[in-house]
């Protein structure tokens, strides 16, 4: 059983607290473009995107910088990553992100900080 983020979109109010805490912790600023969880208000409802740890990106990486750690989390070895963003383009869920300020991509590591911030229980950690 991998540790993953469980998503219940029907409970989400799109308050953005999860995005803010994520970018604040990892990039020291509140900027949803730098968050590893993304909330979108779509015509057919709210969409939450975060990595499901499916691991399809592992084989795509030309430098073997992507791997699954002992908790089942897909992680990026920054020292190997050459910033090609192949993984960003090919993620089946659109959950591998990039930002022009950084040369490496970033993703959800199921750290759970956003879960603590979520006022409605729309996200939870499993595993």
């Amino acid at each position: 059983m991998y540790k993953t983020l469980i998503i219940k979109e029907e409970l989400c109010t799109a308050c953005g607290a999860c995005e803010n805490v994520c970018s604040r912790v990892y990039f020291k600023e509140e900027n949803r473009e730098k968050s590893a969880i993304r909330i979108e208000n779509k015509p057919d409802g709210i969409k939450i995107t975060a990595c499901s740890q499916c691991g399809q990106c592992i084989d795509l990486c030309p430098v073997e910088a992507l791997y699954r750690d002992k908790n089942g989390i897909i992680r990026i070895k920054k020292e190997l990553c050459v910033g090609c963003f192949s993984c960003v383009g090919f993620c089946p869920e659109g959950a591998m992100f990039f930002h022009g300020d950084y040369t490496e991509p970033f993703k959800c590591t199921a750290c759970g900080l956003c879960v603590k911030e979520c006022p409605t229980g729309a996200i939870a950690i499993k595993g």
Binding site: C84, F85, S86, V88, G89, F90, H99, G100, D101, T103
Partner: peptide, 15 residues
Amino acid sequence: FAKIAKTGVKLHKEI
């Protein structure tokens, strides 16, 4: 760099 990254990701997604 941001422009290069954005243009690259656009083509990765297209492929």
